[in-house]
Write a protein that binds this DNA or RNA. Sequence first.
DNA 1: TTGTATGCGTTATCAG
DNA 2: CTGATAACGCATACAA
Lengths: 355, 355
Amino acid sequence: MAGLSMRKQQTNAYACAMRRPTLHDVAARASVHPGTASRALNPRTRHLVSPVTARRVDRAARALGYRANPIARGLKTARTATVGLVLPDLTNPLFPPIVRGIEDALRPAGYSAWIVNTDNDPERERTLVDSLRSRHVDGLIVATARLDHPLLRETAAELPVVLVNRGTAEPGVSQVTPDDALGIEQAVRHLAGLGHRHVAHLAGPQDLSTGVERLRAYRRAVADLGLDDAPGLVERCGTWNEDEGAAATHRLLDSGLPCTAVCAGNDLLALGCYDALRERGLSCPRDVSVVGFNGMPFLDKLRPPLTTVRIPHHELGAEAARMLLAQLDDPDRHPRSVRLPPELIIRGSTRAPRS
Amino acid sequence: MAGLSMRKQQTNAYACAMRRPTLHDVAARASVHPGTASRALNPRTRHLVSPVTARRVDRAARALGYRANPIARGLKTARTATVGLVLPDLTNPLFPPIVRGIEDALRPAGYSAWIVNTDNDPERERTLVDSLRSRHVDGLIVATARLDHPLLRETAAELPVVLVNRGTAEPGVSQVTPDDALGIEQAVRHLAGLGHRHVAHLAGPQDLSTGVERLRAYRRAVADLGLDDAPGLVERCGTWNEDEGAAATHRLLDSGLPCTAVCAGNDLLALGCYDALRERGLSCPRDVSVVGFNGMPFLDKLRPPLTTVRIPHHELGAEAARMLLAQLDDPDRHPRSVRLPPELIIRGSTRAPRS
DNA sequence: TTGTATGCGTTATCAG
DNA sequence: CTGATAACGCATACAA
């Protein structure tokens, strides 16, 4: 790694980079003690200083273009106005909108987010959470929650944590998730309304709240609506991706069970389903209707455009951020769980079954 | 904002949170002076300490689960092993893979990235760059470069900066960009090879290197290949998005100029083009062939799958990160400019013109 | 109301 | 080779 010796050189190369003015400089210019300047500049302690002095300090700070050094401040206060954001994978199009929601809610409060990717690797996750903590983030928003997730419990015991999108079975952790059950119910009800009796489900990973709850909701909807409940109509996928969706669809079709519609656990699985159908010369929606879940971008550009359950990504993130801020404000606040309602978006991939 | 008074409460709510061990604790346990412990733990200064002492310190550190506090370290060294990453918009699917490339290249060097979104707002950009600087990032990777971009010149004079994806006309700034000219040439040559003589171009924003260079390359290719060079075959778009692409396509079709193929400045414009064609009852590729640019994810799932020029996103990011690391190592290093070769991906949206 | 002193955790520069 | 000490920039008890 770069030696510290470079520091001297850097001073050469970026010679024009004037040292940022410090509180000390401001104090000197205003002819007050640094402590006074600190108080004057801090909204919370400003009332402790005389208005004239305060204004003088303000002017000095403005003139010098003073900006407090958050590092030094953090060292003293043990707070950084920063929250860590733990994602499985930023390249999954589900997450960027959630991130935007988080940032948009954090900004007005003066907080910013530090984003890390775990790649669904628990070890990497542990390392990253540790590095966020050593950077003294004030709290954590976690999108990688598993149902069984000791790290989460440990971490939440030590600093404010809010889960987003995926929940956990670990106690004492706040979470903001889509109402998976409601979404799946809408999807299955839509298919049943079109006349489908044999609806399959591509289930997601069963160690994630999303995978489990969507499967459970599917089963309940099938029962409630009196649809075909053959166990073979459920195919499990190990991860939320297209390959798994395609493989599961192939297994489903190989089973020979009657099936005119597929309710996929998420959009990526649905995309894999598209691939498998095409590979077998089957047409969606003529032969098989397909519903996705999440409302990823660009699904309307597919052929056929994918009917899906849209979850409010941005709002999911914003709500998680607001919840974390509240928790930051009042650490004794009781952990709570919020479910946001999804919305069925009907497009071209669903239609009544033939005959 | 949350008062600091909360700190006390926080100590209550997260009471079990043991204080992280500090260098001081490690030193005490190893019965050495903190200074010695610091030297022993720092690979660069480890040779200054006797092997036995070093090992003793190591053991103490391990036993206590010691992790250096990067904040305190940064305060002293004015270095943070952190780089700022300035993006226009994380929800644009072009960027996440670039981010991953950057992170993957940064990680082995012990650096991490702090991501911010400007929304293409210069004022917001200035604020964010400022906040990154006050957080003492060691350098900047910027994906929001415009051709005319004073902030870039100012900033690059004060700390290492590398541009990624978009370049600038400002002098003295390193950049890693796709070889836009080569990519467009491949695209137009492909269309010409299929027999197209009237190829339109949906040009991107002309204040961005990408927009300008792709337009220039289109013009050159049209000239070289002896294609129809009617000025009306170029339609300008103010931003890289679907709406602009659709509007431009409508204008193009309204012009009545003969045109059998569209070379879009990027994939989003091409998606807009799809929409416009569909709206007019035209078929791609039967009536009009379309080529995109960038190689966004999921383009193969469109109908028809979009022929595009794939740029090596991950490598683009990785190369930018490596370049920044090199610059961090040697601040006197001459700024340089790297262009990465793209690759034409031929899919179903291009075919020979009718008749 | 203001100044003073101290500490946050670490590294660098001295002595020894 | 190791220990002592002084910063780094800021916030905050405490003294004045």
